[in-house]
Write a protein that binds this DNA or RNA. Structure first.
Lengths: 192, 192
DNA sequence: GTTTAACTTGAATAATGATTCAAGAATCCC
DNA sequence: GGGATTCTTGAATCATTATTCAAGTTAAAC
């Protein structure tokens, strides 16, 4: 017997960052050995192949995101407050460094979603989990806000999520702080 | 002297379709020779290299889009009518075949925009042209609608475009006709 | 302390990638 | 029709890719 020398979560976060920066196809195995510190053989032993490493990184990404948003939503006093925090965080990420500008899920979906069923399934699953997370915020009976019907909450959450994708893409086209804030403000207005 | 045997526009449209279907990195030169009918040497002679072919395809894409939307907007009687047509067309594309589901500009930006300055410039230029095209619709003093200030038109057009990106991405996550139509309807409501 | 199973190493492999180039073919101009 | 110019051809080249594997190393178990 022998225990693995590397820390799985660290390896996955490094791989994840590389995938977000360069995209799946342009993240070569040499690059992955470099950023993870693992030799090819170890990667193939632990994750089967490059695609397996991507799938594991996607799961890690989603787990990290869930924690991040649960913290972000803690102690919100109203739907408006929760969405405001979310949007501020989003705009901050869009203006931040390369590796946080993009969402691993949508970036990967855009790049290779149509070409691989396993990856498409993994991404769809994780993206609808993300949609649920937002939908829950719309469904909470806030002390300071009126309650929404299930149907209305679903529709509004969907529009919100769709616009979040839009803001991320818009930020890729032109990274202007005032434009992004204006878009976020407007989205908040039409959502709440 | 000798005239070229191939039709440049046809070649570019075929290349464009391949780039939209497979993405830049996964559209190999063998694939490009297949879809364009040109031999490697001819491609390198006419477009310098693979990147040059992409840049030319981007220009052709934008030229085609401009014509498409000018036709689409012809004889609109109000802003609402123009946007309605645009959104119907958009949802139709999202539900249609692979090569029309995506926008070459945003797809390429997502995949390799950060990695190549020339491509980023070309995409930014074309995307802001597209934004202008939509902005013009908001600025027209329609017979049936009230006029907007320049500033208000710019802001609304920007939010609209951002949401169009969002709808395209959302369609990639789940291609549900009723969801897409509901998103389009809501976008129309908050835009006009 | 020896065994044993598991992890690590990194060079070798085989496939695929973009790009070049020299030879051949076709058209225009005089 | 002859020459000049340009386009076409496609095999060869060189770089890069993902993946494998056999040898080496480590630590837990008895």
């Amino acid at each position: 017997m022998r225990t693995a020398e590397f820390d799985r979560e660290t390896v996955l976060r490094n791989a994840m960052q590389a995938f977000m920066t360069y995209g799946y196809n342009k993240t070569s195995m040499p690059k992955l050995t470099e950023v993870t510190g693992l030799h090819p053989g170890s990667i193939y032993c632990a994750f089967k192949n490059k695609k397996g490493l991507l799938l594991a990184a996607i799961d890690q990404y989603q787990a990290d995101r869930r924690v991040h948003y649960q913290k972000l939503f803690e102690n919100s006093t109203s739907l408006r407050c929760a969405l405001e925090r979310f949007l501020q965080d989003l705009v901050g990420e869009c203006l931040g460094d390369e590796s946080k500008k993009v969402c691993l899920l949508t970036k990967t979906l855009n790049e290779i979603g149509e070409q691989d069923a396993d990856i498409q399934t993994a991404l769809s699953t994780n993206l609808s989990q993300f949609e649920s997370l937002i939908r829950q915020q719309f469904l909470i009976a806030w002390p300071d806000s009126e309650a929404l019907s299930e149907d209305e909450a679903t529709k509004r959450a969907r529009f919100f999520i769709m616009s979040v994708y839009g803001i991320r893409t818009y930020a890729a086209t032109q990274c202007d702080s005032s434009h992004l804030n204006a878009l976020a403000d407007r989205l908040l207005e039409v959502s709440v």
